[in-house]
Design a protein around this nucleic acid. Structure first.
Lengths: 202, 202
DNA sequence: ACCTGAACACCGTTCAAGT
DNA sequence: ACCTGAACACCGTTCAAGT
């Protein structure tokens, strides 16, 4: 779990090989991937696998966290671009679209997505929520995001993203529909603000 | 799989007990439910379980199909009400809302949902698509459904419905967002229940 | 310290024996 | 015909023995 500060050379090599093998096999077969298969693919004995990751869940978690890190990087990059003046709704569409595309090829992405909502690592979750809040604020400021949308809503959208069980065309259409539910109502300019029943930001 | 036209009295009783036990345990624990546990709960030996359902997947499939049947019934009822003059968007909201609520308590519902898109039983799928097409047509006619929405879009929405991994408040908020993506641009989506702030998972 | 691989435990599945 | 439950196979996990 906690990577020791210093690792024997062969141990470090083994760990890297295990992670690489796990990335490949778990992305392809999900949790169905067998520990023996992963060990063989990594060129180590099962015992070695278990020395580095005490349980299969720990190994999966490591892969998922790794991927969550990449997602956070993408999020940070989007925030940076928005700070530089790019359109928030455009960056958000791009971000969610990239994640959805990834989720179509890698079974781990959905799990990484869920980690945003159910904090396994609270610090990472806070990092994500901070980034999402920046995007939401920018979207509200430029008037392209629906006024009642919150960072939590983005988490909901991301965690209900389709995986590879839906064909690509459907995943693409999902993105359109999802963004439609996030976007500001553009048909009528937001002058009087709708009195419907939207829980306004008070 | 194919239920024999006549079944010995004890066999029929066993089958019913197995289905009831499976409903309970699979709804609660998903596919993690053990075959031995289901057999014990049903009061039969494992061999008997396997005589009725050659494989665990078959048993799960039976439960899922059963539930899909209930969903289709609900769909047909909605179509009937719309034919009687009820609002299509309102019935659609109610229908998806009920399914979402069910999915929050029963891990099988999502699987049943997926059956709509990936036809396990083509005839059932066709029945569902016919019903959905009626609702879509009615929604277009009354102008409450977004003009470009198709029955396939409803399948996408239903198969990306959140399960019990999202808390109830988030599931409720999901419904609002989903209906927003389906509604006509100028229409105010009817909310059967009071809208809740959807802050997502804490 | 770390690695190895045989052995154990658990659960899906089978089958010889019963009625 | 249908039921029973011990036995088998598979896979996650452990551990005594090696270096």
């Amino acid at each position: 779990m906690t990577t020791p500060s210093r690792l024997r050379a062969d141990a470090a090599r083994n760990r890297a090989n295990i992670l690489r093998a796990a990335r490949t096999l778990i992305a392809a077969h999900g949790e169905r991937a067998g520990m023996d298969d992963i060990a063989r693919e990594a060129g180590v004995a099962v015992g070695t696998l278990y020395r580095h990751f005490p349980t299969k869940a720990d190994l999966v978690d490591a892969i998922v966290s790794e991927l969550a890190g990449l997602i956070f990087d993408a999020l940070d990059a989007a925030v940076a671009r928005v700070d530089s003046g790019d359109s928030a709704i455009k960056e958000l569409t791009h971000l969610i679209g990239r994640m959805s595309e990834a989720a179509g090829h890698d079974r781990t992405v959905k799990a990484a997505m869920a980690n945003l909502g159910v904090p396994v690592h609270p610090d990472l979750t806070e990092r994500a929520m901070t980034g999402l809040a920046r995007l939401v604020a920018a979207g509200h400021a430029e008037g392209t995001l629906h006024p009642d949308i919150t960072p939590g809503d983005l988490v909901i959208v991301m965690s209900t993203m389709p995986d590879d069980e839906l064909p690509e065309a459907a995943r693409h259409r999902w993105l359109e529909l999802a963004m439609r539910s996030l976007a500001a109502p553009d048909a009528t300019p937001p002058a009087g603000d709708e009195p419907s029943r939207g829980p306004g930001p008070a």
